[in-house]
């Protein structure tokens, strides 16, 4: 009796895991099926690399892909020094009490709603950029700056976690040899933690590529290729959020599934990248 209960429970737990995995694949299949009319119509390259020119019946998302990276890459570049500095203080430069406080604060920051960052960005940052630097204000720069603040907590948590996971015996050996805090951090902890930190970097880039609200609210959403940081841009996520065609069968509407597929592939690529990094770390150890 007991064993059959065990078997039933196991089957139930397995089916729940199975359902979740099947649903994950279903998202991708759904988007391919719904995007099919678009792929049948245009040439394959036109969709991914082409420009958005409804007059000619071409609905390429090339500019949205470019816009996504135009905003996400600077956000990661801006966030990197902030995250490195803060995780250095958490993992080595500050004392244990400061460490606890800072970690709690950073954890709290990961929970601040994205829409609030966007809201403050519109009323604090956009007017400032418009007046000081010119341009429309809603631009690549505004979106990347706010996005940088948004992804920094994720990066800090990963960075400081990998730094603190370094074998304490190594750190103490360096200490016994007379290495100061910054020396232990730079020459003992940092080299060993690089793998884990790379994971954090990839995940933060993934968050920046997949965020919707910041770019939607702050980047201006203009169709077209941004030529500089003060130009507006439209991201893949923003494009999905903005298309509200009444006609579900129009090619214009179908283009959002191409955006969805691109984003899904970015996610898959980042997960695979993280797995490679982790495997490399294990082999090195």
């Amino acid at each position: 009796m007991k064993t059959s209960g065990d078997a039933i429970a196991k089957a139930f737990f397995l089916s729940c895991a199975g359902i979740s995995a099947v649903m994950t694949s279903a998202v991708f299949l759904f988007m391919i099926v719904l995007g099919l009319p678009l792929f049948r119509k245009g040439s394959f390259m036109d969709i991914w690399m082409g420009t958005w020119s409804p007059a000619e019946g071409v609905f390429g998302i090339g500019h949205m892909i470019a816009g996504t990276f135009w905003i996400a890459i600077p956000a990661v570049v801006l966030s990197l020094p902030l995250s490195l500095g803060t995780s250095f203080v958490i993992a080595g430069l500050g004392g244990p009490r400061l460490r606890e406080t800072l970690i709690s604060l950073v954890r709290f920051m990961t929970g601040i709603p994205t829409v609030i960052y966007g809201f403050l960005g519109i009323f604090l940052l956009v007017p400032l950029i418009r007046e000081e630097l010119g341009g429309p204000g809603m631009c690549v720069l505004a979106a990347s700056m706010v996005l940088a603040v948004l992804i920094t907590p994720t990066m800090v948590l990963f960075f400081s976690h990998s730094l603190m996971a370094v074998d304490p015996a190594h750190v103490q050996a360096a200490r016994a040899l007379g290495a100061g805090r910054i020396q232990r951090l730079l020459y003992v902890m940092l080299p060993e933690a690089l793998g884990g930190m790379a994971t954090g970097l990839v995940l933060a880039l993934g968050r920046a590529l997949g965020d919707t609200l910041i770019a939607l609210m702050l980047a201006g959403n203009a169709l077209g290729m941004p030529a500089g940081f003060l130009d507006p841009a439209r991201t893949l996520t923003g494009h999905i959020a903005l298309v509200q065609a009444a006609d579900y069968d129009s090619l214009e509407f179908r283009s959002i599934f191409a955006c969805g597929i691109a984003l899904y592939l970015f996610t898959t690529a980042s997960v695979i990248a993280v797995r490679f990094i982790e495997r490399g770390k294990k082999e090195a150890a």
Binding site: V27, I240, L263
Partner: peptide, 10 residues
């Protein structure tokens, strides 16, 4: 890792 807008689209 799937962006929330893609889940919304689904």
């Amino acid at each position: 890792g799937i962006p929330s807008i893609v889940i919304g689209l689904f």
